[in-house]
Design a protein around this nucleic acid. Structure first.
Lengths: 104, 104
DNA sequence: GCAATACATAAGCATAGACTTATGTGATTC
DNA sequence: GAATCACATAAGTCTATGCTTATGTATTGC
């Protein structure tokens, strides 16, 4: 996993959609493929890229493989972004929003 | 500027380096090219991509064009990332850090 | 154990993208 | 106003990438 590999991984719209779908809950490759007009190998390759980038994690369960979001990947992105915090004027508003959200 | 075009724009290591360099202060294309082993058109094309993605802004000054980071691009990235805040365990720590930083 | 299932891997193809050289365009300098 | 400067744009090349079909490899069910 390189420094900012997640950019290349998420540059593809299909992989973004997969990632987004996994955000709703862990899933195996076959379930993930529902709704996508994609061959099984294509999905497998996409999952491989997301995994190499550290964005998702996998867990073998029998002949199935369960995929889920890897929180570390999210943290990586936040870390990268934090370098540019000074350029983020909405920062204070966002903080307020997050804090309010956390109080619920 | 599409939904998440910034991913494709920053998927390229050269463009990330350019973006990073602009974070230190606004610069024109010729100054930006210093230290990069790149032809002038290549740099111009990279800047075009970053601009289309909404990551940088440009300002014509005579025959020079001054480039700078577009804060809106940073905000866009944060907005995209915020969808996955629930997967970010370091979130609370990060918030604390930001708040402490803001107090200074 | 044999067929089926759930995946990964291999190989090939077609398009996208990053680069080059060549050229165009507007601003400056003399 | 002619040369120069600071860029953008055009066109072509080469590699990366996303897809396909074909095949390999565990695991499960009967």
């Amino acid at each position: 996993m390189s420094e900012a590999e997640f950019f290349k991984a998420l540059a593809d719209p299909t992989r973004r959609a997969v990632f987004d779908r996994l955000a709703d809950g862990e899933m195996n490759a076959t379930e993930l493929r529902q709704g996508f007009q994609l061959s099984q190998p294509a999905m497998s390759q996409h999952l491989g890229v997301l995994r190499s980038a550290g964005l998702i994690a996998e867990q073998k369960l029998g002949r199935n493989v369960l995929y889920r979001i890897n929180p570390g990947g999210i943290a990586q992105m936040h870390k990268w972004l934090s370098r540019y915090n000074t350029f983020w004027p909405e920062r204070v508003e966002e903080l307020k929003r997050l804090l309010k959200e956390m109080d619920q």
